[in-house]
């Protein structure tokens, strides 16, 4: 726990449904160390994405604490630097080409300088899209778009990558290649990875595995 980059304690999340409150989960503890990879599985609607949103401070818990690098400050600007988020639906900005989409992560959190451009180009090369930098998202395949999203998540050298079913929209072969890339880069750069997935094979490739069921996060191994 001492080298934990992300720590969540006793998280509780409920949603209001009419006059009732539905509990998604309660008393969830979670931590991840630098360079470690953890997967979270669970049935649809079990609250995996909600948990990931809480870990990214995109949503607020009803109770519990969250700390990034031991610090409870989890504002917008800090999120952009500390966390890299990958979504199932890629969420690339359609008006920007691949390189501009990757640079967008830096634009929002800081300034674009030659070093940032060099890093974006290097990441584009790393995800195997060296020659597709000036292509718009509409000109890229699903796998290529997710590779761009991976590069964008890594642009600010975050401490943690939060990936929410990153292969959910991809065919098996493409999904495998994206997973290879994601796990490889995270290991290479010592970036912690929290992977939400339905696929047990991908879950097995992470160092630790959790299962979210009926509001409880249970370690599988």
């Amino acid at each position: 726990m001492s080298d934990s980059v992300l720590t969540a304690r006793a998280l509780r999340k409920t949603y209001r449904s009419g006059n009732r409150r539905l509990e998604v989960f309660s008393n969830v503890d979670f931590h991840i160390a630098a360079g470690e990879s953890v997967s979270i599985r669970g049935e649809s609607g079990s609250g995996k994405s909600t948990l990931l949103n809480l870990l990214a401070a995109l949503d607020t818990a009803d109770s519990g604490t969250l700390a990034w690098d031991g610090c409870a400050k989890t504002g917008n600007a800090a999120r952009g630097r500390f966390v890299g988020i990958i979504f199932q639906a890629f969420y690339l900005i359609p008006e920007l080409n691949a390189l501009e989409n990757i640079l967008m992560a830096r634009r929002i959190t800081g300034r674009i300088d030659p070093a940032a451009r060099a890093r974006a180009a290097e990441l584009l090369d790393r995800v195997g899209l060296k020659d597709r930098g000036h292509h718009l998202p509409s000109q890229l395949s699903g796998g290529e778009r997710q590779r761009v999203a991976v590069a964008r998540a890594l642009m600010n050298s975050p401490r943690v990558i939060l990936a929410d079913e990153p292969t959910g929209n991809l065919d098996e072969k493409t999904a495998d290649s994206v997973m290879d890339l994601l796990l490889g880069i995270c290991a290479e750069t010592k970036t912690a990875l929290v992977l939400v997935t339905h696929n047990p094979l991908y879950a097995k490739r992470t160092a630790r595995e959790y299962f979210l069921h009926e509001g409880t996060l249970r370690p599988v191994r």
């Binding site: 995109l58 917008n76 952009g80 630097r81 988020i85 967008m104 992560a105 929002i108």
Partner: peptide, 8 residues
């Protein structure tokens, strides 16, 4: 997404 990337 802008929010997820750190925008206010």
């Amino acid at each position: 997404l802008y929010g997820a990337l750190g925008a206010t």
